[in-house]
Amino acid sequence: MLLLDENLSPKLVARIKDTYPGSLHVLHSKLDNSPDIEIWCYAKKHQMTIVSKDKDFLYFATQHGYPPKLIYLTTGNVKLAAIESILLENEAIIKSFIKLDKEGVLKIG
């Protein structure tokens, strides 16, 4: 479902697993320290939505379109609990975004 970029804590996966089952961190996918394009291709191949604060993924979304979809977090540097709250509080919006085939980028924060 969700593929969390390395700029997010791997601990986040356990904290959102009930809401977003099947989500992974790039570390769990052996993609830590991989170029962003490899993460992009992995997400596309496995039908996952990338969650990131990295502007490079916005570039990929503009250049390559979707899939994969991107949830771009506009929060800046915040604590793990803040990211967790954003993902959990926006569950309906995120799940609708993933399901519908209208847009490739969702900016939340």
Results as ranks from 00 to 15, higher is better:
residue 5 D to C: 01
residue 15 R to S: 05
residue 77 N to K: 12
residue 89 E to Y: 09
residue 24 L to W: 07
residue 7 N to Y: 08
residue 19 T to R: 04
residue 44 K to R: 14
residue 68 P to M: 06
residue 16 I to D: 03
residue 70 L to P: 02
residue 74 T to P: 05
residue 20 Y to D: 07
residue 28 H to A: 13
residue 92 A to Y: 11
residue 39 I to R: 03
residue 55 K to M: 10
residue 105 V to H: 09
residue 1 M to A: 10
residue 54 D to H: 01
residue 77 N to P: 03
residue 26 V to E: 00
residue 66 Y to W: 13
residue 46 H to E: 14
residue 38 E to Q: 11
residue 34 S to D: 09
residue 78 V to G: 01
residue 62 T to H: 13
residue 70 L to I: 13
residue 59 Y to L: 10
residue 9 S to A: 10
residue 26 V to F: 06
residue 33 N to F: 12
residue 97 F to G: 02
residue 55 K to I: 12
residue 34 S to F: 09
residue 26 V to L: 07
residue 93 I to W: 09
residue 30 K to F: 09
residue 18 D to G: 12
residue 57 F to Q: 03
residue 109 G to H: 12
residue 54 D to G: 00
residue 77 N to S: 14
residue 52 S to M: 00
residue 103 E to T: 15
residue 55 K to Y: 12
residue 107 K to P: 05
residue 62 T to M: 13
residue 66 Y to D: 05
residue 23 S to T: 11
residue 74 T to L: 11
residue 86 I to S: 07
residue 88 L to E: 09
residue 22 G to P: 03
residue 65 G to P: 06
residue 61 A to L: 08
residue 15 R to A: 08
residue 55 K to V: 12
residue 71 I to K: 05
residue 15 R to M: 06
residue 32 D to Q: 15
residue 15 R to F: 00
residue 1 M to V: 08
residue 82 A to E: 14
residue 87 L to P: 03
residue 50 I to L: 00
residue 8 L to G: 09
residue 41 C to M: 12
residue 83 I to W: 13
residue 52 S to G: 04
residue 33 N to C: 08
residue 32 D to L: 15
residue 66 Y to Q: 04
residue 17 K to P: 00
residue 10 P to R: 05
residue 51 V to A: 01
residue 71 I to R: 05
residue 51 V to L: 04
residue 11 K to P: 02
residue 58 L to C: 06
residue 17 K to S: 11
residue 1 M to Y: 07
residue 49 T to P: 01
residue 47 Q to T: 13
residue 55 K to A: 12
